[in-house]
Design a protein around this nucleic acid. Structure first.
Lengths: 343, 343
DNA sequence: GCCCAGATTGTTAGCGTTATCAATGAGACG
DNA sequence: CGTCTCATTGATAACGCTAACAATCTGGGC
């Protein structure tokens, strides 16, 4: 029972075609698709059969125009090749799929007021139902402040004084745990190889590290600032370890820790016998570094998932504008072989 | 000159509002936005001013409905947390942004006929102008074969006998280079720690490796199959290196090479003095492995970029259905310290 | 000053769906 | 057996934009 389609003149199947075939009106087809319980089972079956026979696919643009809702969520994210943003994005996408949402992404190479604004504008004109912003930079905060507060926006891993729901990992707590772990092994104090200045996470980890040291009245060494890359871990590491006093280093992520381990090996300093190293992230490769890396595991997928849930809440309760929720995921210290008792 | 907006009754600004404010018709506003050269400069300026004053943002859904083109590209991708897919995606996104396209993604945890079909359907109903499929699995090929050939589809890194334009890296050539490099260092033959069975790239690398060995009439050792993870590299590595004959190993990606290096270290086999290791990918961390990894660099970003260009060609020349183009990016051997002359 | 071609602007009619209200049908009840 | 109610279904009008054609304006040449 193929349709007599003259090739070259194929017109996309529209709702009216289905209606005709099923012997009903277009409106009934629409109802079958959106609220089937309002259509008598016999009619419904006929319509569904017609839908299948014609391989009908509703036109989302028309639906959006008529309803004002698109079923698409926008994500504005920083460099999606980084482990954190990529995993978060993946978590969001999985959650979205479960709830029949689609994801439109804008990935930014630079995060500031201008680029964020542009990204949000692009998504807005696509009629997204809401926007999740993965904005790990502090300068991003300004860009967020002048967004219209009536927009459904959820923020991931940003400063916590923004007027939007927020999902993030407790970076501060993770840094505290990492630092305490090193102190508990007998190290007099802990050096910190931090992330770049502008990053919220980097800042929070610095604060956690500092607080943990102060709480036990240890000296707070000067902080060394990297850029997340293994390369910076290596180069800065070579400088740090010239000082024989340095026996415990907390690197702000696993990549820098890897570079640091490399520098230590080249310098002939043994890990963990002479120097202990802790990372942050727990990338899948961390257990296979030399030596296997003690690090702080953060579950980015879970963060993405929670960000999506926050968005769903926000969409379903649009009146709750003044109710910015927080969903904080706790990180977990994973002890491996890069840390040991000082002797 | 703020609009007298009664709160709670804010209606989105539409084209007609702008037209009224500028004292022109809606059509003129449309023209200013889409083909400004057809409007007299003075009028254009007035319209643009009105656009800015009202903060007007065109409704994409309405435009799609009227034109049939959305300016959105769909991407169906496998697990976007993996280095390859994530980098490719990023490349696509950057290229798209330059050309004012948006990207809608569907990331799949499992790649087969069913999931690919669903992903494509979801994107199709979103009126995407085209779909880029990042389909590194062989079983994905079947899923691709029964897609309507009139759809604008571009495939990344899949089998090369599909009726779609294709962008990929010359995996075979990369594997040949890696293997030859090891042979040139004096190793009698080269073992291969491959990627999982179903992957196109894994298969091509196996073929390249085998061909390089056969070309120099070397014995072809049994292939060991991993799953891309550092963990599998470690576990399988422990078995391989029990055999003292094994002096040169080509791992199908950097993560497995890392696991392998770890296994070698634990077994007390020195790299590269006793065993040489080559990876594949050149992840940013590879130079900081212990020892720094010799590997084959593949430029995923470039692949994404070319995939986008292919899509643009396809969209602009819709008649060229029977002209599947190929864009193959050549990988590059990067020699570091994990390979050395056998002695 | 008048006419004509080309430039500029306006009018009308969809694009494919859904909201709303009207119309129809089928039972239920007295 | 007639009337009323609720369940189904249908007709019409948006939703916001642009394609296609119509109308108007502009300036140059005579």
């Amino acid at each position: 029972m193929e349709e007599p389609k003259r090739p070259g003149e194929r017109r996309p199947v529209v709702m009216e075609d289905v209606a005709e075939r099923a012997g009903v009106s277009a409106m009934t087809v629409s109802r079958v698709l959106n609220s089937p319980e309002k259509v008598r089972p016999a009619t419904r079956a006929r319509v569904l059969a017609a839908v299948k026979e014609l391989d009908y696919r509703p036109n989302a643009a028309a639906r959006v125009l008529a309803t004002g809702r698109s079923g698409v969520l926008g994500v504005v994210s920083f460099d999606t090749t980084l482990y954190g943003p990529a995993s978060t994005l993946y978590g969001i996408e999985r959650a979205a799929r479960e709830h029949d949402y689609m994801i439109s992404i804008v990935s930014l190479g630079v995060l500031n007021r201008k680029t964020i604004g542009e990204g949000v504008d692009r998504l807005r004109s696509q009629n997204v139902d809401g926007i999740i912003i993965v904005a790990p930079h502090e300068s991003a905060a300004e860009g967020l402040r002048d967004l219209p507060p009536d927009l459904a926006i959820v923020v991931v891993g940003a400063a916590d004084d923004l007027p939007f729901p927020l999902a993030s990992v407790d970076q501060y707590g993770g840094a505290v745990r990492a630092t305490r772990h090193l102190l508990s092994l007998g190290h007099g104090t802990v050096w910190h190889l931090s992330g770049p200045a502008d990053w919220v996470d980097a800042h929070a980890r610095v604060e956690g590290w500092r607080a943990a040291l102060l709480a036990e009245e240890r000296e707070v060494p000067e902080m060394i600032m990297g850029d997340w890359s293994a390369q910076s871990g290596y180069q800065l590491g070579r400088q740090i370890i010239r000082d024989p006093e340095v026996t415990a280093i907390f690197a702000a992520n696993d990549a820098m820790a890897l570079g640091l381990l490399r520098a230590l090996r080249e310098a002939g300093r043994r890990v963990p016998e002479e120097v202990s190293v802790v990372g942050f992230d727990d990338v899948p490769e961390a257990p296979y570094f030399s030596p296997p890396l003690t690090t702080v595991r953060q579950n980015f997928g879970e963060v993405g998932f929670r960000a999506f849930r926050l968005m769903l809440d926000r969409i379903d309760a649009p009146d709750a504008e003044a109710m910015p929720h927080r969903r904080v995921v706790e990180p977990e210290l994973v002890v491996r072989e890069s840390t040991g008792v000082l002797r």
